[in-house]
């Protein structure tokens, strides 16, 4: 098959059409609109960088960006720590290994919206009744403060995503050549040494993959945010994705929301490109 063949273009036509109309055209239009006073119907006048300039003094947007960053950093660390621990547990010589894998992975199959609702019940009702029974004041009124909303989201995401990250670590752990580890054992390497000099370097690519998967997933979070806290109290647990949505569809500030969306895209793109760069560099080294 060659590029000038008709068949080449026929094979590509459906996806080119879909990607073009669903991603490329809206992206280009969006970039254009972000420099105008677009209101969803009329393009409005050209305003240059005004929308972008306004962003930097928009406290609600900056707060959501900061909240999202804090949430992502804490979640990434916790999810990876728990995920790796679970992977080490289920790859050791235990009888219930496959049953445990199935269990830990299960939350990933269920939508974030539904999981958020389940946890809302747990934080609001179960925490309160358990707190009352054991006399722990700190279990009362969860999700009604910024802090409990933050940790509520962190707990929900760690519970949901740890099993996903576990699966990735398992793929690398099970790919380790057994002979290598046994040879090191025979040569007298201790357990920490084996971990430090053999297992860790070989599992290192899994860290990069998992870190960035969790980072981009937590940074773009919307469904769980909506169903668990809906951004409350007083928009203090509102993450970027939700902030953009509300700017557009609640306040009807379309052009302004689009400028936020472009900034959001740039941040996510940089995160992903850094990952690609690190992966490539490692491949060269190996």
């Amino acid at each position: 098959m060659r590029t000038k063949d008709l068949s080449y273009w026929l094979f590509l036509a459906p996806v080119l059409l879909a990607l073009g109309l669903v991603v490329v055209v809206p992206m280009v239009l969006g970039l254009f609109y972000s420099f105008t006073a677009w209101n969803g119907i009329q393009t409005g006048e050209f305003v240059g960088f005004q929308n972008y300039i306004n962003l930097f003094t928009d406290e609600r947007f900056l707060d959501s960006l900061w909240f999202t960053t804090k949430f992502s950093v804490v979640s990434v660390i916790l999810i990876n720590f728990i995920g790796l621990s679970l992977a080490l547990i289920v790859t050791s010589k235990i009888k219930t290994s496959s049953l445990l894998r199935t269990t830990f992975f299960m939350p990933n199959l269920i939508g974030g919206l539904i999981l958020g609702f389940i946890w809302q019940f747990i934080f609001l009702k179960v925490f309160a009744s358990v707190g009352e029974a054991v006399g722990m004041e700190s279990l009362q009124a969860w999700l009604s403060t910024t802090e409990t909303g933050f940790w509520g989201l962190v707990i929900l995401m760690s519970w949901q995503m740890a099993g996903y990250i576990m699966v990735i670590y398992i793929a690398y752990l099970e790919g380790l050549p057994k002979e290598l580890i046994e040879a090191a054992e025979i040569d007298g390497a201790s357990t920490p040494q084996r971990f430090r000099y053999i297992i860790f370097p070989l599992v290192a690519p899994a860290f990069t993959v998992s870190m960035f998967l969790t980072l981009s997933n937590t940074f773009k979070l919307y469904d769980q945010n909506l169903s668990l806290t809906a951004g409350g109290p007083y928009n203090s647990t509102e993450m970027v994705a939700m902030e953009i949505f509300k700017t557009a569809f609640v306040q009807n500030a379309f052009a302004y929301a689009q400028a936020k969306a472009i900034i959001f895209f740039l941040i996510v793109a940089v995160i992903s490109l850094v990952q690609v760069y690190i992966n490539k560099r490692r491949e060269v080294e190996m």
Partner: peptide
Amino acid sequence: LIPFQSVMIP
């Protein structure tokens, strides 16, 4: 690389 929110509105 493009998050959904970036193309959602247009």
